[in-house]
Design a protein around this nucleic acid. Structure first.
Lengths: 143, 143
DNA sequence: TATTGTTATACTCTATAACTATA
DNA sequence: TATAGTTATAGAGTATAACAATA
């Protein structure tokens, strides 16, 4: 078997490169990839629970719990006991957090544009769809 | 911005799921993803240098150096001073290593087949090509 | 001095489980 | 007792740099 023909390998290889590039861009804003995903997710839909954010940020809940404390100390988010179900904690983005999102999203989009500029739109749409389908399949099976 | 429309996010999300599934399969053979990639790479082309293997296995060279020691202790590979350039160390797969590759590759291919069975062949070919192109672009820029 | 690899250290993220608060 | 989250601990990988061997 040739590794570069093996699909999971190909995906992991490019994912690693992209993560590393993204992280460098975000480091200028003192954010790691996970914190940025949390902010973007809250900017889009505020007041999500820790468990929800663990899902969207692709971060273990124990890691995320500490990360959120750190982000709260920095004034990016605020944690509140949820109502009516006070077993949950909801996380809320602050004005500072919104500002960081406003600054970083253009960078992210520029980065994405540079990355994708030579790719045919139709091919890109197909790739998106395949990747999403693979994700669903992987979740479904959970080998 | 919606995170699930952001291309680097989509790739990372599926890559994470695939790595985690693959790791579970390989755990039955007492291998992590990195060690398996090393074995498959050497099975295909034996006697590669540590630096080369760091590239194909997507592993930092300092991590890999220790991993290779561990694999050598387990009798999977052997390190030798290269000739004529003895600054390099070449890594050679053992008979045991070959056996592990023979056992694991069918598992990996079955896994890949399950993953890809519902995907149209043409779409898959396009996706492969796009992912490889993205990888090249990311390497080229190295933001 | 340059290249290749090893080792040491601190740091981050993960995995697991024990623990707390709420229902 | 079940759910949501926090905290503790150990382990795996990374990043960086100092170090050794070879050229």
């Amino acid at each position: 078997m040739i590794l570069t023909h093996y699909f999971p390998y190909i995906i992991n290889r490019v994912a690693g490169e992209l993560s590393s590039s993204e992280s460098k861009v975000l480091a200028e804003f003192d954010l790691n990839l996970q914190a940025w995903r949390v902010l973007v997710a809250l900017d889009e839909h505020d007041g999500q629970r820790v468990t929800d954010l663990s899902g969207v940020s692709l971060t273990e809940i124990s890691t995320l719990s500490r990360l959120l404390d750190n982000m709260e100390e920095r004034g990016l988010v605020e944690k509140r006991r949820a109502r009516p179900n006070a077993r949950s904690v909801t996380v809320h983005i602050s004005a500072t957090g919104r500002r960081v999102v406003e600054e970083t999203i253009p960078e992210a989009l520029r980065y994405q544009d540079t990355l994708l500029e030579d790719i045919d739109d139709k091919d890109l749409a197909i790739t998106r769809q395949v990747l999403n389908q693979l994700y669903e399949t992987a979740l479904l099976h959970k080998w």
